[in-house]
Design a protein around this nucleic acid. Structure first.
Length: 276
DNA sequence: TCGTTAATAT
DNA sequence: GATATTAACG
């Protein structure tokens, strides 16, 4: 039963995080108050720049807006050092980002689901093989665990959001749980990842706050109260690298700016809707 | 070099 | 304690 070959692609787009959803994240997650606490200030633009479309460079370059870099006595490092020797900030796998990850793996198949391939498919600027490898490792464990639980019929529930917050957020393809199919390779010639999506990156130099944000509209009319404690860090999106090679991916008509163009569609649930 | 696993750091 | 990064190994 494979009828969603074309659907896959189409669906992907739909599944991609809408600008609206990312906006809240991409926007300044740091509340003015919090900023003061950390002595942060926006020397750039407090309201003019809607979305600076940060690049890997910005990534590795939290700029002065964030807390200090490494606490190494004013080493400071010049300041404009290319993201070469700089250590990338901790990457937070948001549900959307993870979703993309799962999507990529699904299309590739467990067989070809290797860090490098996945990374390429995801086409997330800044995302490194290590990032994917690490996540893949965790993801595999999750799948394995899921099987063991679903099977033995232990006493615990099969789906424990508390056990795997992130993973539980994304639907796991069925063929993920069962071993490969000998004699039949279902490989999708899928190419050219829909780079129209913009996975969100959340770098947290110091604070480690976990927040759940996701769930699209139309499913559960459950709205969480925007009671964010206000402890998020700088966030930025990715994708959009000008590939020197390759046939320049056609950028969708996506507008990067328009912070709050619409007012009614924000379904940011602080909690993964405990429907399970 | 790449992928996987274990250990370490935050 | 959970999650991501780094190191070591195949």
């Amino acid at each position: 039963m494979k009828e969603d070959e074309s659907n896959w692609l189409s669906r992907w787009e739909e599944q991609l995080p809408s600008p609206d959803e990312l906006m809240p994240l991409s926007q300044t997650l740091i509340t003015p108050h919090l900023a003061l606490v950390f002595d942060l200030h926006n020397p750039n633009n407090p309201q003019s720049t809607p979305l600076p479309a940060p690049t890997p460079s910005s990534l590795a370059h939290p700029s002065s807006s964030e807390f200090e870099n490494s606490g190494d006595l004013g080493s400071g490092a010049g300041g404009d050092e290319p993201a070469r020797t700089l250590k990338r900030p901790r990457l937070v796998w948001t549900p959307q980002l993870h979703k993309r990850f799962v999507d990529a793996v699904a299309h590739l198949g467990i067989k070809n689901a290797v860090p490098k391939t996945i990374m390429q498919l995801m086409s997330v600027d800044g995302l490194t093989r290590e990032n994917v490898a690490s996540h893949l490792q965790k993801y595999r464990l999750y799948l394995k665990r899921m099987q063991g639980h679903s099977n033995g019929g232990g006493g615990l529930a099969s789906s424990d959001p508390a056990t795997d917050h992130l993973f539980a957020s994304s639907p796991v393809p069925a063929h993920f749980l069962h071993p490969v199919r000998p004699g039949q390779d279902h490989f999708m010639p899928f190419v050219a990842p829909p780079q129209s999506g913009r996975p969100i990156w959340v770098t947290h130099p110091q604070l480690q706050q976990q927040f759940h944000q996701q769930r699209q509209v139309g499913q559960v009319g459950h709205f969480g109260s925007p009671h964010s404690n206000g402890q998020f860090e700088h966030s930025f999106m990715t994708r959009q690298q000008a590939g020197p090679r390759m046939g320049a991916p056609p950028p969708y008509g996506e507008d990067v700016e328009s912070g709050e163009a619409n007012g009614r569609r924000t379904v940011l649930t602080l909690f993964p809707t405990g429907d399970d």
